[in-house]
Design a protein around this nucleic acid. Structure first.
Lengths: 143, 143
DNA sequence: TGTGGAGCTTCCCATCATGGGAAGGTCAAG
DNA sequence: CTTGACCTTCCCATGATGGGAAGCTCCACA
């Protein structure tokens, strides 16, 4: 199997497959005589594992850890659960932050006429007319 | 006012102030004899505007538009409201996506013993044992 | 046998917003 | 006059991904 086939079989772009190899997330593939990378079912399975972990929002670093645990037949499931739980916390924090932003924005949008007149509470708020900053929802966006 | 003072007055790091100038988000500052950038209240006000927009999750590009609208005394508030509303939609989409991830992960974590045995439904799921991928929550993480 | 196009290779660059740090000039306090 | 805090510019890194160029290989078809 060439990289293109592995790509469509796994849903990971060829670009990304090479990148994952480069950063050591997956082992360097064997090459055929023409210097093309050669993949088997095993590799495709791994790529699908990675894809799914990414879909669940795990970083490549977390994915690497999960991958190692997956391949470690004697792992303790608590190790995996810890990573998942931490990740859930992470997601929930970011969700809460964004919900705060939405709440503020909805309020402002609600107060804004949205017509052809210049008066706009959204801009007034951004400008901090009622005295300055950090009344904002969350301080850091990438918390 | 030097850049350090402007930074602590606005909450925007000196690094970022220079960057904003470089990309044209703010006008190049006047320089004093020693080649130091010089800021006044006006500039600090603008920096705070930017800071607050960023806190609300607007991109720098959106922030630039908002900034121009702010300075355009004859703007129509509908233009601002449109941006805000679009941004709300954006945030809500991302929130929904993450909530889906959380839901899936919570279910998996709930089913995982989290003990010293290797058996782990989380990994089983990532491996796609019940037939392959895209049962995942959202296809793309950065939708 | 020749040719065209699809697919592979590597290498470099861009994104987005931010931070780190080096090398060197400047200023104020001791 | 030294020391340290501040400023300047310049380059590099992050995380995950895509775009594209230049050059090779392979296969199918005329």
């Amino acid at each position: 199997m060439n990289i293109g086939e592995a790509s469509s079989a796994s849903g990971v772009s060829a670009k990304m497959i090479r990148y994952y190899e480069e950063i050591g997330l997956i082992r360097p593939m064997g090459r055929s005589g023409n210097n093309y990378r050669v993949y088997g079912e095993e590799e495709v399975h791994i790529l699908r594992f990675i894809k799914r972990a990414r879909n669940l929002g795990f970083s490549l670093e977390e994915t690497e850890t999960l991958l190692k645990l997956w391949q470690d037949k004697s792992r303790e499931s608590s190790a995996v659960k810890e990573i998942a739980t931490a990740h859930i916390g992470d997601l929930e924090r970011r969700i809460a932050e964004m919900q705060g932003m939405v709440k503020t924005l909805k309020h402002l949008a609600h107060c804004c006429g949205g017509d052809n007149r210049p008066n706009c509470p959204i801009l007034d708020d951004l400008a901090g007319d009622g005295e300055m900053g950090d009344r904002a929802v969350g301080k850091k966006i990438h918390a």
